[in-house]
C-alpha cells in the first residue's frame, strides 16, 4: 500500500500527515488525529454517524479517503464551540432533550450546524431532509427536529 503526504485543516488547525492510500477520512480523524467525537457505526455510509463538514458540506467521512480530503477544511464536533460557549444547535439539543445515549448526537449537531449556515430558516421538511441520512435509535427524532427548528429561530 502506498503512503501519501496530505495536509488537512481540521477545526482551524493545520495537520501534515502521511497516510495509507486506503485510509478513510474517518479513520484519520478518529485514530490519527485522536478526535473521537466523530463515531463509526457501519463503515458503509448507511448510518451517518461519521458526519463531518468538508469545506462546510456535511459528509460521511467513512466514504471519503483521507487522500481525497487533502487540502480541505474539515470541521468536526470538536470544532463547533465558540470559545467556552456552546453553539445554538448544541444548546437547543440540551433544552429539547434531543440527546439520549449520545452516540449519534455529534453527527446530528454537525449536520444541523451546516444546514443552518446554508439555510438559516429551514422548514420542518428541509430539516428532515438534511438529517435523513443519519440514524438515531433512542430519541424518535422528534426532539432532534424540534431542537434544530428552535436553533434556527434563535437566529444566530
Amino acid at each position: 500500500m502506498s503512503r501519501h503526504k496530505i495536509s488537512l485543516r481540521v477545526n482551524g488547525q493545520r495537520y501534515e500527515l502521511e497516510v495509507e492510500a486506503n485510509r478513510t477520512l474517518l479513520q484519520t480523524i478518529r485514530e490519527d488525529l485522536e478526535m473521537t467525537g466523530t463515531k463509526c457505526a457501519c463503515e458503509r455510509g448507511d448510518c451517518g454517524l461519521c458526519t463531518v463538514m468538508v469545506d462546510g458540506v456535511p459528509t460521511k467521512s467513512c466514504l471519503v479517503l483521507a487522500v481525497e480530503a487533502d487540502g480541505k477544511e474539515i470541521t468536526t464536533i470538536e470544532g463547533l464551540m465558540k470559545g467556552e460557549e456552546l453553539n445554538p444547535v448544541q444548546r437547543a439539543f440540551i433544552e429539547h432533550g434531543a440527546v439520549q445515549c449520545g452516540f449519534c448526537t455529534p453527527a446530528f449537531i454537525v449536520a444541523a450546524t451546516a444546514l443552518l449556515k446554508r439555510n438559516p430558516k429551514p422548514s420542518e421538511e428541509e430539516v428532515k431532509e438534511a438529517i435523513g441520512g443519519i440514524l438515531c435509535r433512542c430519541t424518535g427524532y422528534r426532539q432532534i427536529i424540534d431542537a434544530i427548528l428552535d436553533a434556527s429561530k434563535s437566529g444566530k
Binding site: 485522536e34 478526535m35 473521537t36 467525537g37 466523530t38 463515531k39 463509526c40 468536526t76 464536533i77 470538536e78 463547533l80 464551540m81 456552546l86 448544541q90 439539543f93 440540551i94 433544552e95 432533550g97 440527546v99 449520545g102 452516540f103 448526537t105 455529534p106 449537531i109
Partner: peptide, 21 residues
C-alpha cells in the same frame, strides 16, 4: 432538569468504550 451528561454529549467529549486506547 437538563441531563447531567448533555454537555459532554453535545461537544463530542463523552467517551465510549470504542474511544479508549
Amino acid at each position: 432538569v437538563p441531563r447531567l451528561d448533555a454537555i459532554e454529549k453535545v461537544t463530542g467529549t463523552a467517551l465510549y468504550t470504542g474511544d479508549l486506547r
